[in-house]
Design a binder for these strands. Structure first.
Length: 591
RNA sequence: GCGGGCGUAGCUCAGUUCGGUCAGAGCGCCGGCCUGUCACGCCGGAGGUCGCGGGUUCAAGUCCCGUCGUCCGCGCCA
């Protein structure tokens, strides 16, 4: 089809363009047919401009339907003062159309594309099935534009500092550690499979051995695990690695980059966010002690407190037995919670139970303390009040259980309390560093040590001596960036000494034969002059979520999948032809 | 793997408590009217396997059982 090329973008026309004859290409956003005159809002990537049609001059105006594709020529004219629309940037002018052509018709739409308010409630599956329509909405375009700008700023920042961007393979080998792999059958040897990378971890270390020194990649990662609002089966990380660095070098670089990228985006897109400040640093131990989690939301205080020692001595059976059986008694503070109704407190208890608490003991701080006060002496109550830094009118909530359970419950309760108290400031992106993770944690079920981060993470040099005697006490050169209670980036200094790497593998229960078969390539590589190196990997999708204030990762991905990893747009995954089964040498196992 | 919410017109929802004028609304769509709208307005109309299957009942959108889909969460996510 022939059509005239546009001379201008619809959203950029202003009174200064009055008198010009322009050609616009775009979509029919909305039609207003007043009988003796007709208006169309024409939309393109840049915005919206009102078109004026004189029905006396044209045939076929009935073919102007929502979301059809239009090409028009006409003259830019001023609107009369009372006809100005202050809601849109082009509202002072309109186009008097001389010629128009419908380049493509549009069927009845599955959802109201032009109505952002109604689109809020449209089912996600339907939006994703017709994503090409959903993405026509200016708000969706803007989300992807912010995301693209993040990536552009990252590239610019790292390129200026001498990094080289390298692509690593999507077809690689399975590493049974960590998440479940996505597998791709290998045609030439039936029974063998590629795996899609959970991250480019090993490749980037090999690039360090190769002497690239400063590498990054905007890398697709694949993990076959259950989805969440902020997790998709395939997602994107900024993967970066540097040689001849210590932990401080990575921290400095990553923090500077993050602040630069965020603040530039906030400014460019006029995002509803305060500038991102320096990142506080806290140790893993401190995070666990104060917040019960290694990803604390630091927009507010509400520190947890530990009353195990008081509990051990007290006359309250629930507390005492928990303390005596190796558990803990920890608590959270609800400022002003003394005025909550019984029903509201019950809701908090239900909340706690849904995360595994057996109960939620309450202590109301007042002239006449209530709740579990009757089981405690005035001295004990005062000790607890002091530990909790509580004042009159506050409510203290306690979980008595094994430390892991108590922390799990209380860390979530703390966030819930903050939410109810309006302490989760939407304007704030509170990044922080969490440092000094333990190298390994004991896996009760499998009866072995697991790597906290991954098996290539270096122990702190000063802790290596305890590797064999007291592995649980060994800290790692490992660091996370957390933002508003969400893990955003994770990194470490890597082991570059094959002997130390072998010792760590042995600690993790990976025997020598398995080390050879599964990690031989990287152990070999390290024998040929591996430099000290380390890196970090922040999530690109989540960064876009932070900046846009989105709770859902699908809002910042062009073509996301729904719940079970299903893509309603492509109808994938799907069956394959018998010939493809045969060619792959595969058969379906009968259930 | 588990728990909870939702599933009724193209879209968003009401109706499900307590089975019986209960096939409804707004938007969209179609037709008509309309010379300054911008969520245009007014009049009229079409449109439904109440997710699917089974059961109870004289009678099921409504109650029971099963199942599928989706959303949120738990487990999982080196």
């Amino acid at each position: 089809m022939r059509f005239d090329q546009r001379t201008h973008f619809a959203g950029e026309l202003r009174p200064s363009d009055v008198g010009k004859t322009v050609c616009l290409n775009g979509w029919c956003h909305r039609v207003r047919d007043l009988g003796g005159l007709l208006f169309v809002d024409l939309r393109d990537r840049s915005g919206i401009c009102q078109l004026f049609f004189d029905p006396a001059k044209f045939e076929g105006l009935k073919s102007l339907r929502s979301e059809c594709v239009l090409s028009i020529t006409g003259e830019v004219v001023m609107r009369s003062p009372e006809a100005v629309n202050p809601k849109i940037p082009t509202g002072e002018i309109e186009i008097r159309v001389d010629n128009f052509a419908v380049l493509a018709d549009c069927d009845v739409l599955p959802f109201p594309v032009s109505d952002e308010e109604q689109m809020e409630n449209v089912s996600e599956e339907l939006r994703i099935k017709h994503r090409y329509l959903d993405l026509r909405r200016p708000s969706m375009y803007r989300s992807l534009a912010v995301r693209a700008e993040c990536v552009r700023l990252i590239r610019e920042f790292l390129d200026q500092r001498g990094f080289i961007e390298v692509e690593t393979p999507i077809f690689t080998r399975s590493t049974p550690e960590g998440a479940r792999d996505y597998l791709v059958p290998y045609r030439l040897e039936p029974g063998k499979f590629y795996a899609l990378p959970q991250s480019p971890q090993q490749y980037k270390q090999l690039l360090m051995v190769a002497g690239f020194e400063k590498y990054y990649q905007i890398a697709k990662c694949f993990r076959d695990e259950a989805q969440r609002a902020d997790r998709q089966p395939e997602f994107t990380q900024l993967d970066l690695e540097m040689s001849f660095v210590v932990q401080e070098d990575i921290l400095t670089l990553a923090e500077a980059m993050t602040r630069h990228v965020c603040n530039a985006c906030i400014q460019k897109f006029e995002l509803d966010l305060d500038p991102v400040g320096p990142f506080p640093r806290i140790s893993y131990d401190e995070a666990m002690r104060k917040y019960g989690t290694d990803k604390p939301d630091l927009r507010f205080g509400l520190e947890l407190f530990d009353v195990t020692e008081i509990a051990r001595q007290c006359g309250f059976g629930v507390f005492k037995s928990a303390a005596d059986s190796g558990g803990v008694v920890r608590g959270a503070i609800y400022p002003g919670g003394g005025s909550l109704s019984r029903k509201e407190v019950e809701k908090l208890e239900e909340f706690a139970k849904s995360f595994g608490a057996k109960g939620l003991a309450q202590l109301f701080i007042a002239q006449e303390p209530k709740g579990i006060a009757k089981f405690l002496t005035p001295h004990e109550i005062e000790q607890i009040r002091s530990l909790a830094k509580a004042n009159e009118g506050d409510l203290l909530l306690f979980v008595a259980d094994q430390a892991e359970t108590a922390d799990g419950v209380l860390s979530r309760l703390r966030v819930e309390i903050a939410e109810r108290c309006g302490l989760r400031d939407k304007r704030k992106l509170q990044f922080c560093w969490v440092l000094d993770f333990p190298l390994v944690i004991w896996n009760e079920e499998e009866n072995r040590w697991d790597a906290t981060h991954h098996p290539f993470t270096s122990p702190k040099p000063e802790d290596i001596q305890s590797l064999d005697t007291d592995p649980g006490s060994v800290r790692a050169d490992c660091y996370d960036i957390v933002c508003n209670g969400v893990e955003w980036a994770s990194g470490s200094i890597r082991i570059h000494d094959p002997e130390l790497q072998a010792r760590v593998f042995t600690l993790l229960g990976v025997n020598e034969a398995t080390q050879r078969s599964r990690f031989g390539h990287i152990l070999d590589a390290f024998k040929f002059g591996a430099p000290p190196h380390g890196g970090i990997a922040p999530g690109i999708d989540r960064l876009a979520m932070f900046l846009l204030g989105k709770e859902n990762i699908r809002e910042v991905m062009a073509f996301p999948k729904v719940g079970g990893g299903y893509d309603p747009l492509m109808d994938a995954p799907n069956t394959i032809d018998q010939a493809q089964w045969d060619e792959m040498g595969l058969m379906l196992k009968k259930p």
